[in-house]
């Protein structure tokens, strides 16, 4: 079993190769058109879960446009992230209804549970990233929280701890 760790390194390397192959495929698919920049960035972000600096530099070369311009677009839209995100992205709604129903309490509970704060959004083990968003359009369920694709409504202190614990358990226990 001593090879497990090395195998992991190996798998990761292959994942990276595949990701980069994908980037090349994406720009080829859109025929290197500058006008498709936002779509390209979206698809690249889907691959990496964020936009790595060197990949943006590569895109600038491939699309023949200045890096500063791509960086400008990537920082303009809240959808794009320039920081690596965790495997589970938690979005807490802070729209009016959720705010009134105590979404900030929920955020604070998550800060405490995941040892995060206003300037630190991602856990050290790259498992969780916490974000707040404005209105998910499910005000009837306030306060609402979304973890990747799963939606949770009326989340209180107890429920949030259960949700996080179940994810940690599924991932092989607390580290």
């Amino acid at each position: 079993m001593e090879n497990t760790l090395l195998d992991e390194v190996f798998i990761e390397a292959n994942v990276k190769t595949r990701q980069f192959e994908k980037v090349i495929e994406i720009v080829e698919k859109y025929k290197f058109q500058k006008s498709r920049l936002i779509t390209i960035l979206q698809e690249v972000q889907e691959e990496y879960r964020y936009l790595p600096q060197e990949v943006l530099t590569f895109l600038a070369t491939a699309l023949d446009m200045p890096v500063a311009e791509i960086y400008g677009v990537a920082t303009f839209y809240a959808h794009f992230s320039l920081e690596a995100k965790g495997k589970y992205v938690i979005k807490v709604c802070n729209g009016t209804a959720c705010h009134v129903k105590g979404s900030m309490k929920l955020v604070n509970a998550l800060f405490k549970k995941l040892k995060l704060n206003e300037n630190k959004h991602t856990t050290d083990d790259m498992m969780f990233t916490l974000e707040t968003v404005s209105c998910l359009g499910a005000c009837g369920l306030a306060p609402v929280m979304v973890v990747n694709e799963s939606i949770y409504g009326q989340v209180g202190d107890k429920k949030v701890n259960e949700i996080i614990d179940s994810i940690i358990e599924a991932e092989g226990g607390a580290k």
Binding site: Q53, L56, M65, P66, V67, A68, E69, I70, Y71, G72, T75, F76
Partner: peptide
């Protein structure tokens, strides 16, 4: 195109990508 707008709204600034210095870009 060494400089462009970065961020948006009240956070907008002008500068090279990734907060780099003009000395390190094109």
């Amino acid at each position: 195109g060494a400089i462009d707008f970065v961020q948006r709204g009240s956070n907008t600034t002008v500068g090279p990508a990734y907060g780099k210095s003009l000395a390190d870009v094109e």
